[in-house]
Nucleic acid binder design. Sequence first.
DNA 1: GTTTAATTGTAACTTTTGTTACTGCCAAAA
DNA 2: TTTTGGCAGTAACAAAAGTTACAATTAAAC
Lengths: 210, 210
Amino acid sequence: MLNSLKENFAHIFEEALIDEILEVGTLKEIKEGEKLIEIGDYVRSMPLLISGAIKILREDDNGDELLLYFLERGDTCAMTLTCCLGQTRSEIRAIAELDTTIIMIPIQKMEEWTGKYKSWRNFVFQSYHARLTEMLETIDSIAFYNMDERLVKYLQNKQKITNDSIINSTHQEIAYELHTSRVVVSRLLKKLESLGKIELYRNSIKIISL
Amino acid sequence: MLNSLKENFAHIFEEALIDEILEVGTLKEIKEGEKLIEIGDYVRSMPLLISGAIKILREDDNGDELLLYFLERGDTCAMTLTCCLGQTRSEIRAIAELDTTIIMIPIQKMEEWTGKYKSWRNFVFQSYHARLTEMLETIDSIAFYNMDERLVKYLQNKQKITNDSIINSTHQEIAYELHTSRVVVSRLLKKLESLGKIELYRNSIKIISL
DNA sequence: GTTTAATTGTAACTTTTGTTACTGCCAAAA
DNA sequence: TTTTGGCAGTAACAAAAGTTACAATTAAAC
């Protein structure tokens, strides 16, 4: 744990804090597709992302989903922060997008460290800032862009997160995350293919240039 | 300033903090429609809302707007918080929805107080939580609801904020904030009127029951 | 009082998105 | 091998939202 922690957080956290994290944190491996947090859950520990990626989803009353953003190496879940402190239930669902490693911090420490370590405070504030910014980008996407542009953004994002120009998703899965229908996704993907920007295969999409 | 501060924040902040706020904060009156923050601005002080309401808007590359949420009495601007700390430019525009009174806190104090006062930390975290929640509601609206439902929510919200069942807005103004066209707003408002839920006048809308 | 500009109402039309239905294809299971 | 179920392609249609155009009304400016 020490190495992975230092690699990702040494330049952010002061040494005493690193030591404390090592003391109370527990390492957790999550397989791709595994659920970390469900809507309505009480959250009792806070994740620090060491490797992999986690997707954060919102759901409406009908069970329809919408992808909000991804968490990556060095990130933490701002929603969890506030849930912990405010003792409220989770508003979102968190699912591992890739095989992921996290360090779990008990929430009691949260409160303690925000008083004690300036580097921790900065980290927490920066996390909030990053998440707010990503939420704004999500809002931009759905408010200001058409579905074809949203789809392109989605594919670009996915490529960046997985670091792979082949995306292993079905049209239906993409449709869920963009909150549209499979037929619409198929239609738009076909158009991108005819423009030579992607190639379509069963269960996967190869990105040529977007 | 002392009275208005105590009225709104006495139950949140410890006394020593109240004293400090009185020392360094400056009272500011803002007229309805006046702009507080423009997109791209560097923000050098943080507002505590004493009375009135402020609307927070997002804009896209074409200059199209979208209402994100309102700030009310007892709120602060989470965006500003992160802008101050991170030294980044504002992602949003803030305009007084009503005549509004705020206390401006210099940003240097922010950092100091988060280390010093637990009540301040809690206030800041709660603000973040509230704003994230409101952003989620905004996302829900635009992702999961049709324009007719969004319009109803908008009117309800406006009624709540202004505490007045008469809304003094033109259809064009509403269209801007919902990021749609005037014709669409007129159409949907007319439908609501024919259902007996509102009454339409020039420059104003009377809410009967929504 | 007349002119001007802003506001609202409405029709007709287009575009975008969503829905239904059916097809062929492929891969895993029986 | 045959069957089954999931996946993708496509047409035809429906609904929602956006656009253009113009008329009628009201308020403000001259």
